[in-house]
């Protein structure tokens, strides 16, 4: 198969060209450092984008807008429960997973019981999650246990530990998407839900599992992000709303559903981070940086739009 026909190729081409610009401005050693940073931050984008990608693949209208609120709530509760104690690392993680499961199930219950579009359901519920997080901790920042911070910021050589872990997860999810019954059900539902139903695929169960998986991944992302950035903060999920969706779309996953790919997520996540870094390197003021970030995202999406 021709390489230019791969949906993920554009994200990677963009990443490489932006990195070349950065490296040519600030030199090779700075270029390597930037790449390490991109891997560190990109890891978190990929983690939420995997869940979002599976949701988007379910078909038009399917998108999870509660990801930022889910991250915030899960990490806030976990950090407060652990209270910096390393003995609580595992219970803290289990709490995070439990919160993810609950949120995913609640989101799906709203979608099914109220028969409302997922966008509206997850938007409404995200208000509840955010309020719960505010109420639970009054916006105080609790430090993560030492070991969690060390793991989240740890590196082997220049490669972040967490990036390796998420890379393994990506490979695993690639397998899940293309080789398992569950993954193929998601693709089938996204391509034609009615046909999938007639073919005997449990459509609602597939959707349920997908929303739950998305919320669990978001919760886990919040857990490690809190470890990475020295605690849970109320606005920690803010940029992840745009990022989770943009990374999925730029990565070459079809917005109309039914077609997904995982390599594109990494390409797009690195691209997004490097883009912001490049604009910083160019020494632009905040206003121009924001304008260019937005304009480039829209341009990339517009260019890749019709090809699908």
């Amino acid at each position: 198969m021709n390489l230019t026909e791969k949906p993920w190729i554009w994200a990677w081409l963009g990443t490489v060209s932006i990195w070349l610009v950065i490296a040519s401005i600030s030199g090779l050693s700075a270029g390597t450092e930037v790449l390490t940073a991109a891997a560190s931050f990109g890891t978190f984008f990929v983690l939420v984008a995997i869940g979002q990608m599976f949701v988007v693949t379910l078909g038009p209208g399917n998108v999870d807008l509660s990801i930022p609120a889910c991250m915030t709530l899960a990490s806030t509760v976990a950090m407060k429960v652990m209270n910096g104690s390393e003995a609580m690392l595992i219970p803290g993680f289990l709490i995070v997973v439990a919160i993810g499961l609950t949120i995913g199930a609640f989101n799906f219950a709203l979608i099914i019981l109220l028969r409302i579009p997922p966008i509206i359901a997850t938007l409404s519920s995200s208000f509840l999650y955010l309020s719960t997080a505010i109420w639970y901790n009054r916006g105080l920042r609790v430090k993560p246990p030492e070991a969690l911070a060390e793991f989240a910021t740890g590196k082997i050589g220049v490669v972040p530990l967490l990036a390796i872990a998420v890379l393994i997860l990506t490979v695993l999810m690639h397998f899940v998407l293309h080789r398992t019954y569950f993954g193929r059900s998601i693709l089938a539902v996204g391509q034609n839900a009615k046909a999938a139903h007639l073919a005997g695929i449990p459509v609602e169960r597939t959707r349920f599992l997908t929303y739950v998986m998305c919320a669990v991944l978001a919760a886990i992302c919040g857990y490690f992000l809190a470890g990475f950035s020295g605690g849970a903060a109320l606005n920690m999920g803010e940029e992840y709303l745009l990022m989770s969706i943009a990374v999925v779309v730029i990565g070459g996953t079809s917005v109309a559903g039914g077609f997904a790919n995982l390599p594109g997520l990494w390409g797009a996540a690195l691209f997004m981070f490097l883009l912001v870094t490049m604009l910083n390197t160019l020494g632009l003021s905040a206003g121009y940086r924001l304008i260019l970030t937005g304009a480039i995202i829209v341009a990339v999406i517009a260019i890749s739009g019709k090809k699908r």
Binding site: V63, I119, L241, L242, I245, A246, V249, V255, A286, G287, Y288, R289, L290, I291, L292, T293, G294, A295, I297, V298, I301, A302, G305, K306
Partner: peptide, 19 residues
């Protein structure tokens, strides 16, 4: 271009704030 409005408008929100 048959684009999803959510993504385009999310991207544009950066542009508006920037200006």
């Amino acid at each position: 271009r048959n684009l999803p409005s959510i993504v385009v408008t999310l991207g544009m929100s950066f542009v508006w704030v920037g200006i």
